[in-house]
Design a protein around this nucleic acid. Structure first.
Lengths: 194, 194
DNA sequence: CTGAGATTTCAGCAATGACTGAAATTACAG
DNA sequence: CTGTAATTTCAGTCATTGCTGAAATCTCAG
């Protein structure tokens, strides 16, 4: 691996963090490399830069495509495939949020929906189901919010983030004026009145 | 494992999802069990319910304590330790957000800070560093926002979530009135003018 | 104190996941 | 088409992580 020191440090770090982020070391390293690169790289360049096997790179790329974090491109007069990481950092954020949700949250939401259809047959089951309903409702609230925010353009999103807790002040005002209430509202309470 | 079917389904699911959430199967199962339980459980009850070894349960509990997702309690006239999962679901959400950030984001932020102190020595390094600055600034914006939101009380948080994308409408109004601008604003742009 | 019950630690085994090289498949220039 | 370069697949091996039982440590009633 002959990379500039700061690039190498970042690549190695992403490799180590990969585990915590739900991908393996090589996948983390490939993404880091592509993210920092000022031009698309082909698989052999990646293999060379990271010092791993060509097949490992192939599998890593496949996974990054599944995450929609890299794109394949073709350069004129070169049969090889080149890879690049999209560079709109806001879009990367949206993609990560969507993909993590798909992997980490949706399956649970689906299970909860199923279980909440069942009729409890004991006090213990009734309590368990009530807890699951709490969890279900909270997740729906969160994912619904995420859906909405997902659709904001970069600037609005940046504004929202910059606002921080200031939003609570804004909410006070809103509740007083009550005119801005636009279309779809959601259920606010998480307490289950069962 | 002799648990009510819906409890068992939920526990097994949490076990399987554990991997994606950064904990092992047993840890996921223990948490699921405690979350659904209507009373604190001792380690032997957990061992019995999950059909795993006592030592495995001990290690799992230790990890859940490190995540601050469970508490130890003592019942009068019983030497054993009992465990319970806090039941304010909003608090659980805050805890999860904090702990995941600590594990998944803070180390990267720290590395980025270090690297951004370095002086690039080539065009390639300059570009890489610019990308890292973008990432750094975005993460700071996100964690700063999270810090703020973290401090909201349950109701304000619920309101914020229910608002969804409606916040952008509110932001428009805000920018027109410009009176609500309270204290700490943050840098909005992510574009690096290097 | 003492000792029985309760909990934690840890070395070794089991299971899972990651990586490699070789073979198979695909893509395309000529 | 054909042949070569490029990519993917996959069986086997290596590395990591998870789990267990036994031993060590801790805790507290008597």
């Amino acid at each position: 691996m002959t990379l500039p020191p700061i690039v190498q440090a970042f690549v190695l770090h992403f490799g180590e963090m990969g585990g915590r982020w739900g991908v393996n070391r090589t996948v983390g390293q490939i993404y880091a490399l592509l993210f920092l690169s000022d031009r698309p790289l082909n698989a052999d360049e990646i293999t060379e830069a990271l010092g791993v096997s060509r097949s490992n790179v192939s599998m890593g790329i496949k996974e990054l495509e599944a995450w929609r974090l890299v794109r394949k491109r073709h350069l004129p007069g070169d049969r090889r495939e080149y890879l690049e990481a999209p560079d709109d950092i806001w879009q990367i954020l949206r993609t990560l949020a969507e993909e993590r949700r798909k992997r980490e949250i949706d399956p649970t939401l689906s299970l909860l929906r199923d279980i909440l259809m069942e009729t409890p047959t004991s006090a213990e089951e009734r309590h368990a189901q009530a807890k699951m309903r709490q969890m279900h409702d909270l997740i729906e609230l969160l994912t619904g919010w995420a859906d909405d925010v997902q659709r904001l353009d970069n600037d609005s999103l940046a504004q929202l983030l910059a606002l921080g807790a200031g939003v609570s002040k804004l909410l006070e005002v809103k509740s007083k004026i009550a005119v801005f209430a636009s279309g779809k509202r959601r259920n606010i309470s998480q307490e289950d009145p069962s």
